[in-house]
């Protein structure tokens, strides 16, 4: 198995490459990104490249990869500009799929990491979104629009390339020790924002289950769209209680304006799609992926609990994970120098 991972510079990409390195039948792992990997990797080849079509096509052709793990979809609008989200999500995916579908391509499997943001959040929503359901509100932020556009590209790709197994995973809000997301940041504040009078049902997925789900799709042929979220739901008030934080209410009307001072003072950035979640919440049906055979390590409640525990440790000792910095020359030396004695390869 020869794998191409996009978005190696994101937490997901690095974590995924780390996990893929454990499998012996994964011969080659090529990672693409404009940023350096976040975690130490042993044999993954990192290529600093943007999502330019000609480069992608050359890489796909030259490496003869058979599996593409497309984890480079930006979903955190607080860390990326609209412009960048459009470039990376829409244009990047378009180029990647074009390269994967080019004549003579060896790609036989495509796994896309998407987000449940695609369902939106509104009052007319069903209480449980299944994969085939459509959102009930028109998308009103760039991240949602770009995800919808990407989703259409992937659907077209699956139709045009019936010989490729296309798996699309929609991940719920992520929580974990090593990950930053608007929710994780909100819950790390001394007081946690809420919208006065609203207590939405929410769902979370643990970072371990995210890598687990991506690996599961890599190891098994399961074409289709799947929601990935911890089982069960929890209201926001209970989540704050588990984490042990007091809540500070935002007004229920003109909430977006009220969130602006928080944004400007860099206390916490609550983008419109997160404010929608704090108002209406969103829960997805997770049965399809479990029926496909995936076993979760964490339920929603367990995810929140684990997150609360890691927050407690962090409040005492600070960041407990050793920080990692990618040194190009050192990594090249370890991978390619004849001075390194590699076991098993002789």
């Amino acid at each position: 198995m020869r794998v191409l991972v996009t978005g190696l510079g994101t937490f997901w990409g690095s974590r995924l490459a780390q996990a893929l390195e454990q499998f012996d039948d994964v011969e080659v792992i090529v990672g693409l990104d404009t940023n350096e990997p976040r975690l130490p990797l042993e044999r993954t080849e990192f290529v600093r490249a943007d999502s330019d079509y000609s480069i992608l096509q050359r890489i796909v052709k030259a490496t003869k990869v058979d599996t593409i793990l497309h984890t480079h979809l930006l979903v955190d609008s607080t860390e990326n500009s609209n412009r960048r989200m459009h470039e990376v999500n829409v244009i990047g995916t378009m180029n990647l799929l074009a390269a994967a579908g080019a004549a003579g391509s060896t790609v036989r499997k495509l796994i896309v990491k998407s987000s449940t943001l695609i369902y939106g959040a509104g009052k007319r929503d069903p209480y449980f979104f299944r994969e085939e359901m459509e959102r009930t509100t028109p998308p009103h932020t760039e991240v949602e629009r770009s995800l919808l556009e990407t989703s259409a590209f992937v659907r077209d790709f699956a139709v045009d390339n019936p010989h490729v197994v296309v798996t699309k995973l929609r991940f719920s809000n992520a929580l974990g020790d090593d990950i930053t997301s608007p929710f994780a940041r909100s819950l790390s504040l001394p007081v946690v924002p809420e919208i006065l009078g609203f207590d939405p049902r929410l769902q979370f997925v643990h970072e371990e289950d995210i890598t687990g789900a991506l690996i599961f799709a890599t190891r098994n042929d399961i074409p289709g769209v799947y929601n990935v979220a911890g089982r069960g739901t929890m209201p926001w008030s209970e989540i704050c209680e588990v984490v042990g934080k007091r809540r500070i209410p935002l007004p229920p009307f003109f909430t977006n304006w009220a969130a602006e001072p928080l944004r400007m003072t860099r206390v916490v950035d609550l983008p419109p799609e997160v404010l929608d979640l704090l108002r209406y919440g969103r829960v997805v049906d997770t049965r399809a992926y479990r029926r496909a055979g995936f076993e979760y390590k964490y339920t929603t409640a367990a995810t929140v609990n684990a997150f609360a525990r890691s927050l407690r440790l962090e409040s005492v000792v600070g960041d407990s994970n050793p920080s990692y910095r990618y040194e190009r020359d050192v990594e090249t030396f370890f991978r390619h120098s004849p001075a390194i004695i590699r076991e098993g390869n002789e």
Binding site: G232, T233, M234, S237, E238, E241, V242, A301, A302, N305
Partner: peptide, 12 residues
């Protein structure tokens, strides 16, 4: 519902 009654605080 998943069996995590003991780690839940509420009963929603």
């Amino acid at each position: 519902e998943p069996p995590d009654r003991e780690i839940r605080r509420g009963d929603v």
